[in-house]
Structure formats: structure tokens, C-alpha cells
Design a protein around this nucleic acid. Sequence first.
RNA 1: GGAGGAUUAGGCUAAUUGGUAAGUCAGCAGUCUUGAAAACUGCCGUCCGAAAGGACUUGGGGGUUCGAGUCCCUCAUCCUCCGCCA
Length: 422
Amino acid sequence: MLELKFIRENLELVKKAAKDKRFEADFDAIIRLDDERKSLILKVEDLKAKRNKATEEVARRKKAKENADELIAEMKKVGDDIKVLDEQLAQVEKNMNQVLLTVPNVPHPSVPDGSTPEDNQTIFTWGEAPKTDFEMKPHWDITQNLDLIDFVTGAKIAGSGFPVYKGYGAQLQRALINFFLDQAAINGYKEIQPPIVVNADSATGTGQLPDKEDQMYVVTRDEFYLIPTAEVPVTNIHRHSVLKAEQLPIKYAAYTPCFRREAGSYGKDVRGLNRLHQFDKVELVKFVHPGQSYDELESLRTDAEKLLQLLGLPYRVLLMCKGDMGFTQTKKYDLEVWSAGQKRWLEVSSCSNFEAFQARRMNIKFKSGNEKPEYVHTLNGSGLALPRIVAAIIENYQTDEGTVLVPKVLRRYMGVDVIKSH
RNA sequence: GGAGGAUUAGGCUAAUUGGUAAGUCAGCAGUCUUGAAAACUGCCGUCCGAAAGGACUUGGGGGUUCGAGUCCCUCAUCCUCCGCCA
């Protein structure tokens, strides 16, 4: 959410940003509602001031055993007027809030123009695609041959997109989770285990509600949402609070399962591990001083990249263009890993700066000494999403014998060097 | 799940049984001092406002009332007890 004042003072900038990001918002309504709001506040506060004075007078007269009936009758009327105006004001503010929630965040000046994925800039590539003299297989063949992942049984138990990991498949997942969390700890992130369901307030705070309700599984009986990412519960840790400046930056790492309905997605993208309804992810979340958020974005990206380098997986970094960036971000990098069997890039992390957009929505401030509290900047990025990493490892490290070499950094977690049929 | 009690600002603690949040410690700034401490002065919940000033604020949300920290309803959290349970 952007600040009303900011929108009014930078109307053209905000309008252009919305257009560049391909979102629509009713800016005329914002101006109109704000004018209404101001005049209502003026009226109602005036009446309240009058009432406050009068009740003091009532108290004084009562104490002096004088009669105050007339004044009380008069204030009863004023009270009714206040009630009506308060209701009008609440309605106007509610409407205003709804419109404000449709105004997207303003991209950082360093973000390239463009409206399609082709306009994203590849700013860095690392590693080389493995060269073999045999035909490299996609991971779904290998995981079936080695009995690592059972998609069919998962579909029986829950539905498609809920795979069952078995044996070394399950162990590889566990190894990756431990590896990612250990690396996060080395980089100064505190480990968090949050709830994997959230209430509506939390889902609204990070922007899942109201826009992306379709993408979440809902527990209607108890009004919970299954989290689509740990970003939701972890960012909400500090909802509605004032942090001390010395606490910043706060860095959290959380492993959780993630649940996504993926409504509307279909086609060959969904094959194997590429797109699941339930998957595991380690998410990195930061709360930082506004002056440092772009440096923190770079270091967040570096932290995520380092994981790919340690795993020896070739990848590239995309700087997302304005039109492909999403509603809440000011700047976003995607990390894509090379999938040697499918011969395509798979997104395994996106690292974003939200500036104060989420903080404003969630009311997360910081203050130093007696300074006025100020909104923090929030950032997050995956570090990393598991299934596509599993896919990339299995494909990039496959041998002509049909086995899979375990990346060196994972061997002490796995206890074996090679994944073979067992 | 049931019964009882509690929740006041960063911490602690008051508030005529309904009359409009008093203090204290910590913290910050200043005066004094070679420096510090002490002492003294000011600031010390949020918002609007250039200011004067005004509005809001006693765990959250509602209600009664001219007026609610105080009375009523509801939710949350904590404590005590009962029940259930891996």
C-alpha cells in the first residue's frame, strides 16, 4: 500500500507506475474520497471538541450540585450527530482503503521498461551446462527409474501435484533443507519455524488477500489459509509493532511446506516437479533500514546465488522488467537454474524489495531514540525452492548408468555419494 | 471444552466505585562540570496541523451513557483449577 499523501503529491509518477506495471486503479476516486474524508474529519472533530468541553462542564456542575439537564440534552443531540458523521467517515475510509489496495508499488528507477518476459534483462550467468555423450533424461524418468518420487501414489492419496518422496528422494529433500538452513545461519539469518496456516489479517498483510485468494487453500471451518510461502507468516511476525533501530536489519530464514492451488495453470509446465500444489521451500526475509534496502537486496540475491554455486548448478540472474514484476515489488531478481534434461531454465528464487509497501500495510515501524517512528523496508527471497532444485540436481548430475551423483556439499547430509536404485 | 482471576504508555504502578489517564524508573536533549555522576529544566503513546490548537489512545472489536480504565457483550493472550489428549 502506498501512502495517500505520497499519491497525492506524486500523482503522475504513481499513475505512470501503475500503467507500466499493467495494473489499473481509480485515481479520481482517491482524490474525491480524500476530499470527502477531510471535510468529514473537520466537522466531526469540531463536534467532538464541543462535546468534550461540555462533559467537563457537566462534571463541574454535578460536583457543585447544580442542574445540568439542559446541557446533557443538548449533548445527546450532538452525540447523535457525531455517530452519523463517524459512520459516514468510516464508510469513506473503508472505500478509500479498498481503492488504495489496488494501487501498485512504484518501480525503482533502475528497473528496465518492458511488459513481457522477453524484456527482462539477463544480468549474470554462472556455470556451464553439463556436456555428455549420452542423451540426458528429464527428471521424471530418472525419479521413476530409481524410485525416488511417486507421483501416481501421491495423486491417489491427495491429488495430482502432491508427490510422495521415497528413499533417497526423501533424503535428498531433507539434505537440501538442512543445507539451506545451515547456510542461512552462516549468513546471519535467524531460523524460524512459523505456523503453516495463517488468519485473514496475516494474509492481507503480505498482499495475498484480497487479490490472490484463488491461489490459496482455505480451511473454511476455522478460517485459516494454508500458506503459499513462508513469507506470509514470517513477515507478519512484526505486524503492528515498532522495532528499535538497533535491531535492524532483522534477517529470518524459515523452512516450510508451501501450498498453492495454481488455479488456471496447465500444459507441459506442470510435468514432474516443475509445478506442484505442495512443495518445500526455505524463505529468507529481511526487515531493514530504508536507506539500506537496495544494498540488502543485492546481498539477499548473493546469499541465494551462493547456494546454487555451492551445489554446482548453472544458473542465470534476471532483472525483471516493470511489466513482469508484480504488484508489490519495487525491484525483483529471478534466479533460474539450468535443467539439463528438459533443456530449459527453471525459476528457483525471486528476490524482491518491497520498500515500505508491506510495512505500511502491516504497520511495521522502527525508531531510534526519540525520533519519530518510520516504516521499515521489507525484502524476501527464496533460498531456495526445493522441487526444481531437486529436478536440476537429478538432471544435471545424472550419469550414463542412470544413477545420480550427489553434489559434494550434500554428501555429508546424505551419507552417500551416488543415488542409485535401492 | 468448562470454572475463576488478570491485561493501563519501553518496564513498574495509581485513578472519588462512571466525571475524562496521576506517578515512578529507564531513555533522550540541555544547563552546571576538566570529564562523569549528582542536581536542575525540558521531552518522553498515535494522528492532523507551519503554528496555535484539535482529535484519538487503558490487550483487540462492539455496546450502554451527556461522559467508560471503571458497567455489559465478544475475541485474544497469560495465570490457577477441572476435563480431554500425542
